[in-house]
Simulated assay, not measured.
Amino acid sequence: MEKLVILLAILPCVFMKTLSKPPEDSEPSLRFAVIGDWGGSHLPPYYTEQETMVAAQLGKTVADWGADFILSVGDNFYDDGVQDVTDFRFKATYESVFNADSLRDVPWYVIAGNHDHYGNVSAQVAYSNVSSRWKFPDLYYDLSFKIPTTNVSVRLILLDTIVLCGNSDDSNGGQPLGASNPKSANDQLEWLTQKLESAKEQYLLVAGHYPVWSIAEHGPTLCLLQHVEPLLRKYGVTAYLSGHDHNMQYLQDDSSIGYILSGAGNFMENSHKHKEEVPDGYLRFFQGHQDTMGAFAYMKATAKELSVTYIQSGGKSLFQTTLYPRWQ
């Protein structure tokens, strides 16, 4: 089927603009935030200043703009995940930090990052039975949401890129080292292909911890370029969401797929180490300066468009762009 995704020209028209509350009569929408690499520290007090600032801004943004859910794209607990479902890090790094009143009843849909897989990742799945807002039903899963009072829907396909590609060795180039269980990796690829092929939703989003494209410290993930990126193109995916590199990036490929990298929940890195490995023209926005003190992406889908706003701690809009439905 011919791809019908259209992306507006990217204009840096809202850099450092103060956010304002949307009008009360705004059209029906599905709203959510994307936050990655927010997982605190393995040392007391088990959170970082940047994490607390991001959490405070996330709470304020949700209070002002609303959110149907939060999407966590992995590295939820640094450095080595959690040990079991009673691990104190759930409270010290998550519950006690993301504690704004506006966030208490908002579900978090969670996937694992490489640091989560250093620990007992099944304990994070099991924590779904402990916390009313922590939603992590399996290592990979999918969700479908209907935009209220419309016939427009959003499909969100959540991957475990560590199962798919292997864990990464940051001291050895940062690339995943290969799937530890090739059969499990192949099973996930077959599942992804089936989900993409059958998706009828107007917006089709795929998320994983590792980025497909990145100019920063870890760079493009070769495994995903080989196995996932061709599927994103073939099935007309609207956008791919990720973290892993500790900054904010927006890239758009030559088939108009948006690549939303939101990895600034806990650290900021201003690396451009792999810039030459990303095709010319793909990078549309980058922010990795430490004085930003973290950021996340806020997404709002209506029947007409999907807006993406990158919001830093303190409430400034860093960048904004718009995607359109695959069909009407």
Rank of each mutant, 00 (worst) to 15 (best):
A9S: 12
A9T: 11
I10G: 11
V14S: 15
M16N: 15
P22A: 05
P22K: 05
D25F: 04
F32R: 02
A33N: 03
W38Y: 13
W38Q: 09
G39Q: 05
G40R: 02
G40A: 05
P45W: 07
Y47L: 04
L58C: 03
L58S: 09
K60E: 15
V62G: 06
V62L: 06
D64P: 00
G66V: 03
I70Q: 09
L71N: 11
V73Q: 12
G74V: 10
G74S: 10
D75C: 10
F77E: 07
F77N: 08
F77D: 08
G81M: 08
V82C: 06
V82F: 05
V82M: 08
V82G: 07
V85K: 13
V85T: 14
T86V: 04
F90L: 05
A92F: 06
T93G: 04
T93N: 05
S96E: 14
F98Y: 15
A100K: 12
D101A: 15
D101W: 00
L103V: 02
D105I: 00
Y109S: 07
A112L: 04
D116I: 02
Y118E: 15
S128P: 10
S128L: 04
S132A: 09
R133D: 12
R133W: 01
Y141W: 08
F145A: 05
F145D: 04
I147N: 01
I147E: 07
P148W: 05
N151V: 01
V152S: 10
I157Y: 01
L159T: 06
L159R: 03
L164W: 09
C165M: 09
G166V: 02
S168V: 07
L177K: 15
L177N: 14
P182D: 09
P182V: 03
P182Q: 10
S184Q: 14
N186I: 01
Q188G: 08
K195T: 09
Q202M: 00
Y203A: 01
Y203D: 00
A207M: 03
V212W: 06
W213T: 01
T221P: 07
P230S: 04
K234G: 01
V237S: 06
T238W: 03
Y240P: 04
L241N: 08
G243H: 11
G243W: 12
G243A: 13
N247P: 10
D254T: 11
G258T: 01
L261M: 10
A264T: 03
N266E: 13
M268T: 03
E269I: 07
K275R: 14
P279E: 08
D280Q: 13
F286K: 07
G288K: 03
Q290H: 13
D291N: 13
F296H: 12
A297G: 11
L306G: 02
L306K: 11
S307W: 06
S307L: 06
S307I: 10
Q312S: 13
G314F: 05
G314C: 04
G315C: 03
F319I: 05
Q320C: 12
Q320R: 14
T322Y: 12
P325L: 02
Q328L: 10
